[in-house]
Design a protein around this nucleic acid. Sequence first.
RNA 1: GCCUGGGUAGUUCAGUGGUAGAACGCUUCCAUGGUAAGGAAGAAGUCGAGGGUCCAAUUCCCUCCCCAGGCUCCA
Length: 599
Amino acid sequence: MKKQKVVDKIKDDPLFSLRHSAEHVMQLAVESLFPGAKKVMGPPIEDGFYGDFDYDGKITEEDFPKIEQKMRDIVKENLPIKMRVATFEEIKETFKDNPFKLEMINDLEKDGEKPTVCEIGAKDGKFYDIDLCAGNHVGRTGNIGFFKLLSVAGAYWRGSEKNKMLTRIYATAFETQEELDEYLAKMEEQKKRDHRNINKDLEVFTLFEEVGPGLPLWLPNGMIIREELENWGKETEEKWGYQRVSTPFVTKKKLFELSGHVSYFGEEMFKVEVPGEEEDEYFIKPMNCPFHHLIFKSKTRTYKDLPLKLAEYGTVARYENRGSINGILRPRVFCQNDAHIYCSEEQAVDVFLEIVDLHRYYYSTLGLTDYHVELNLRDPEKMNKYHGEEEMWQKAEKITREALDKSGIEYTVVNEGAAHYGPKMDFKIKSAIGTEYGISTNQIDLYMPEKFGLKYVDKDGKEKPVIVQHRAPLGSSERFIGFLMEHFAGAFPVWLSPVQVQIIPIGEKHLKYAREVSQKFKDKKIRTFVDDRSETMQAKIRDSQIKKIPYMLIVGDKEVENNKVSVRLRTEENLGARTIDEVISKVEEMYLTKSLNLW
RNA sequence: GCCUGGGUAGUUCAGUGGUAGAACGCUUCCAUGGUAAGGAAGAAGUCGAGGGUCCAAUUCCCUCCCCAGGCUCCA
């Protein structure tokens, strides 16, 4: 289950009351079935609700049927659910054995809020219950609709790993059985779309325990996608005035101390043992930034050089949390579509605008339309974790906001996600099935020039440049391709398809002709294969469909005789017999224009 | 990292205190097909790794490794 937030607006949703009530019923059921289990809390979330319990024993998915049965029993009782204002005295007494509830009650009291409670059932009723609750309920337990428990998980109290871990049960509820079934079907679809599932048919990457977690090996198909994408990135950057550089993947600790990364990411860096150099610690680079700064510094730069755009497809290694590794979406080694832009303060807004345009170009080419920008500023409660002067930060924020406002792009402000050296502008993209991914991050940085002593010669003396730090519209090749696998459900556009044309000879006697046709496509650098297995045509078509190969060319007696090919698209469209030249020019056109269409 | 569940053939999975099965895939042979699975035979497994209990462990227990789903605030 994906992380979901409780948004204020869903409180108006009729499902909110229903799920909120269902959650209370779940609490009742769990408390009666597992003596000692204490409810802590449980809000509705976007797609359902969850309940957190303080319980020293184990609740597993095997227990779900009996919890659900108990819930149905409570539903049958059709008990009233009522809200009322309580006194702090009363509820402190009620929850005297529940330290988590008491903590919440104390917070309420501190904030000067009125404690409201909801009561389920009558005092002499079977399921009498009182709970601290902000309300919005359906009137009776009989109205909680159709529900299903989904999964059980551990969750830290208040999300901090220093706190006790509670048992969380995820569930969902809808007004009708049909809606519930529809939701469950959607979940199934999401699972099928998971890039790790798609990978089984597409053979993009593979993982080995002996290589290590989060360290994917790229298979030939994956490499085709990756190189097409990276070449596109390089060509585009060349057109947009970037210069390519390359920097070593191992470096002394010193460099990252200078950039301030060691104190923030020290634990997330891979250390390298270097015999005979004990006085210097070496690391595999977790980012490319400091190297690019040094390249800027490698000679005298003048205002005429600005904006200087240094680009690198740089492979970096980060020792990510074991639990957050996920296929190629979150590996430990990945290749960034990275670049740093050095410019004057006056140029900064325009440079930023150009970056927004670059994103627009990339995403519209790929047909990605559902995205927005998140502007991450400093967390006002943790101001001490950021480097640099207040004035510098304000300037950086002003530049970023001005650029975003001018660009007309939709953006939201988040007060906590800034990098330690500057505000962040992240692009969040939704895949075709609505899962949101943080793909690209872009930062403005007035701090590093100071740290690295970067200067350029202006008309009247030396000035500090502004750095647009780490801009990466295509993110990392790993995550981007993982995202695209889900987005396209494996059916990549022609230019990214590992095999673009599959030639399917009907019988063995058509093999020679099939190979001749294949060569004609290969001459045009179209990725073409002949399925020469001794299988039926139907089986070959089926296999090509599963691999989402865009074009299937069937050749049999008729085609050989007329010097044609029968074209079947992966959309199951049958275009009938066509001349080879027509097909080649069509495929070539779709390939070269990076079209999202097949014909 | 922490909680829960899992790890058996390339893949998906079944199964058992007496060292293993299916389907798909793969190889070979037969079949010469007309738009999503033709047939047969065969190869393929240190049952995640190490330790313990036992006459005997893939199965029971412990440790570790790997995989999956969760884990800010949000009554």
